[in-house]
């Protein structure tokens, strides 16, 4: 549907959306608790996602009718792929544990970034959870180093 460079821009845009999400959820957590804030955000997020499904669904089916296409048969997927929300929710609880422990917020964020990149590396190599395998090249290491070093400067460099 889109070219490769669009995927890049969307990836970076997703990061910006994530930063905004964290910014507002932290604001809510200041007034409640991290877990309660995440619960509220999940509830409201579900409503927003439902609206998006309805909006885009209506547009898609209109386009399909215009193209004279038949509605495609539902794709079979393993049941566990529907459970992504569980590790997603665990993240908030686990982050609250480490921030309240002896690790600072900055340290927690930094280690979570390292964990994400190492996970990505392992996932690409083994194709974890049915994700497409991708060969790791030396340049990937250099890119990861730049992103991690830059992030560390941003996280620990004061505000």
């Amino acid at each position: 549907m889109f070219g490769r460079s669009t995927d890049w821009v969307l990836g970076i845009a997703a990061g910006a959306l994530l930063a905004l999400m964290i910014h507002y959820n932290s604001l809510l957590a200041e007034h409640t608790t991290p877990t309660f804030a995440s619960w509220t955000a999940h509830g409201l997020g579900a409503v927003v996602a439902l609206l998006l499904v309805l909006l885009t669904g209506a547009r898609l089916s209109r386009r399909r009718r215009a193209d004279g296409e038949e509605k495609s048969a539902p794709v079979q997927v393993p049941r566990w792929v529907y459970l992504g929300g569980i590790p997603g929710a665990c993240t908030v609880i686990l982050a609250a544990v480490t921030v309240n422990g002896s690790l600072s917020l900055s340290g927690t964020i930094a280690m979570m970034l390292v964990g994400q990149i190492v996970f990505g590396l392992v996932s690409d190599h083994f194709g974890l959870f049915d994700s497409p395998k991708r060969r790791i090249v030396p340049m990937d290491g250099l890119v990861a180093l730049c992103v991690l070093a830059g992030s560390a400067l941003i996280i620990f460099g004061g505000s």
Binding site: W8, G11, I12, A13, A14, G15, A16, L18, A19, I22, L113, Q116, I117, F119, G120, V143, A144, V147, G150, S151, I154, I155
Partner: peptide
């Protein structure tokens, strides 16, 4: 992961 982290930071 790398692009999302970049955008996020």
């Amino acid at each position: 992961a790398l692009l999302v982290i970049s955008g996020q930071m």
